[in-house]
Design a binder for these strands. Structure first.
Length: 286
DNA sequence: ATGCCCATCTATGATGGA
C-alpha cells in the first residue's frame, strides 16, 4: 500500500499539479491539507476526476483557510471529522480528518501554526496537539498520523537552527507534544529511514529558498509500530515542488508491505501454485 | 536548470502562512 501526504496550499490552485501527480505516483491513500475550500466546492472540483481514478473521497473544509481530505482506493470507512475534545480558535477549524483505509487508521492533519510563542494561537496549537494525542491513544493499534504538523522535530529539520531561535515550530513545548505522540509508539518513518540526510518538506516561496534547499521538515508521517515495521520506502517527492505553480510543500510518500497474514482476509493462491509458507517469503528490507 | 511569494475574499488591500 502506498500512502502519501501533501499540503497543497489550495486544492483549487493546485489542480493542474495534483491530477498529473496522482497519475504519476498513484498513491492508494492520499492525505491532503490546506485544501482551502468548502466540501461542496471540493466535490465539484474533484469528485469526477477522482472517481475515474478509483478513489473514494472524504473532505472536511471551510472557505478561505484550512481544510483536509483523504482519498483512498483501498477503502474509506468510519470517517471522523475534527479532533474530539480539541479547542477551536474560536470556532472549530477544519484541521483533522480520520478514516480507516486498507486496515489502517489514517489521520490527515493540519496542525495550527502557532504564529508566535506564548500567543493565544500558540496555546491553541499545544492544546489541540494534546487532544490529538488522546484521540490517537484511544484508537486502533494500526495507525498513521500524518500531515502538516507545523513542528520541526529536531534542529536538523530546519535549514538554519540559529535563525529559528524564538520562533514557533522549534520550541521545546511543541517538540514535547511530538514526543508525547512518540510515546504512544508512533515512529517518524522518514527520519528513521534517512537518519543523517538533509530532508525538507517545505520551502518558502520567496527568495529562491527551494532552489538553495533552505527549508524545513514539518510534514511528517508517524506510524504505529506494527505499521512502521511494514515500511518499505519513505521519501519526500521534491519533484512536485519544482516547475510551474507548485505548492510550497512537497508530498511525503510511504510504501508499506502487505499486512501480515490474517490482517487482510484470506489469501487465495493461484490454482497451480502450492500455498507458500511464511518462511518462504523474501526477507523484508529494513 | 529546481530559478528567485502565494492564496483568500460581499477584495481592489489586508491578512495568514511558516
Amino acid at each position: 500500500m502506498r500512502l502519501a501526504t501533501w499540503n497543497v496550499n489550495s486544492v483549487k490552485q493546485r489542480l493542474p499539479r495534483l491530477l498529473p501527480w496522482l497519475d504519476q505516483r498513484r498513491p492508494d491513500v492520499l492525505c491532503l491539507q490546506e485544501t482551502k475550500v468548502p466540501d461542496d466546492t471540493f466535490a465539484a472540483l474533484l469528485d469526477e476526476e477522482l472517481a475515474e481514478r478509483g478513489y473514494e473521497v472524504a473532505a472536511y473544509g471551510e472557505s478561505r483557510w484550512n481544510g483536509v481530505a483523504i482519498l483512498s482506493r483501498v477503502g474509506l470507512d468510519d470517517v471522523v471529522r475534527g479532533i474530539e475534545g480539541a479547542p477551536g480558535f474560536p470556532h472549530p477549524e477544519a484541521r483533522a480528518l480520520a478514516a480507516t483505509c486498507g486496515g489502517v487508521r489514517v489521520h490527515s492533519l493540519y496542525v495550527p501554526n502557532g504564529r508566535e510563542p506564548d500567543s493565544d494561537h500558540y496555546r491553541y496549537k499545544l492544546a489541540w496537539l494534546a487532544a490529538l494525542r488522546d484521540v490517537v491513544a484511544a484508537g486502533p493499534a494500526d495507525a498513521i498520523v500524518c500531515g502538516d504538523m507545523n513542528i520541526a522535530p529536531a534542529d536538523a529539520d530546519v535549514f538554519d537552527p540559529a535563525a529559528y531561535v524564538g520562533s514557533t515550530h522549534v520550541t521545546e513545548p511543541e517538540r514535547a507534544a511530538l514526543a508525547e505522540l512518540a510515546k504512544l509508539g508512533l515512529h517518524d518513518v522518514v527520519r528513521e529511514r534517512w537518519p543523517d540526510e538533509r530532508v525538507f518538506t517545505y520551502w518558502d516561496y520567496r527568495a529562491g529558498m527551494f532552489h538553495q534547499d533552505l527549508g524545513m521538515r514539518i510534514d511528517l508521517v508517524l506510524a504505529s509500530t506494527p505499521v512502521a515495521e511494514r515500511v518499505r520506502a519513505a521519501w519526500v517527492d521534491r519533484h512536485a515542488r519544482k516547475g510551474t505553480g507548485p505548492s510550497d510543500h512537497a508530498p511525503v510518500i510511504v510504501d508499506l508491505d502487505e499486512a501480515p497474514d490474517g490482517d487482510i482476509g484470506p489469501v487465495v493462491p493461484p490454482p497451480s501454485a502450492p500455498a507458500r509458507r511464511r518462511s518462504a517469503r523474501l526477507p523484508q528490507a529494513r
